[in-house]
């Protein structure tokens, strides 16, 4: 095949092909369910063992006292982890090391904002849901 014919074939196939671009803000992004995104501890399951804090390579996890009106017999020390998403590197070591699988994981990625956030509000919302998401 001559180079010109080859070129023509390439041009024609590209005219009829779909654009490669993902129109991101208008279309949802193609994120697989495996993606390591936003994660936060479920207070109904957490036993306050602090293993995730010990293993966090970025020191993003702090142990905080549970709210005074909430008592969990499984959590005798009354503390739970709060993840600072500004420091978190999403390595999921906390998820891996947790002995009771208390972390709720998701593939949410669009966390850009005008300030940094932590997982406290999300964790407190899990109270009373009885471990269901």
């Amino acid at each position: 095949m001559s180079p010109k014919l080859k070129l023509l074939r390439e041009v024609i196939s590209n005219i009829f092909s779909r654009p490669a671009t993902i129109q991101y803000p208008r279309e949802p992004a193609a994120v697989s369910s495996e993606y390591r995104g936003l994660h936060y501890p479920d207070l109904n399951k957490c036993i306050g063992c602090s293993l995730c804090m010990v293993d966090c390579p970025a020191n993003a996890i702090k142990m905080v006292k549970l709210p005074p009106d909430y008592k969990n017999p499984k959590n005798p020390r009354g503390i739970y982890p709060v993840v600072d998403y500004g420091k978190c590197v999403f390595c999921y070591q906390c998820v891996f090391v947790c002995p009771v699988k208390a972390y709720i994981t998701s593939n949410k990625f669009d966390m850009a904002d005008y300030a940094t956030h932590n997982s406290q509000a999300l964790s407190l919302k899990t109270i009373g849901r009885g471990g269901k998401e």
Binding site: A20, E34, Y35, V89, F90, Y92
Partner: peptide, 21 residues
């Protein structure tokens, strides 16, 4: 453009596009 396919494979195998961890 084609490299994005490889990145997608990394994502489904390890959970992240860049840092496998």
């Amino acid at each position: 453009r084609d490299r994005e396919r490889v990145m997608h494979l990394k994502e489904i195998v390890t959970g992240q596009r860049v840092h496998a961890d």
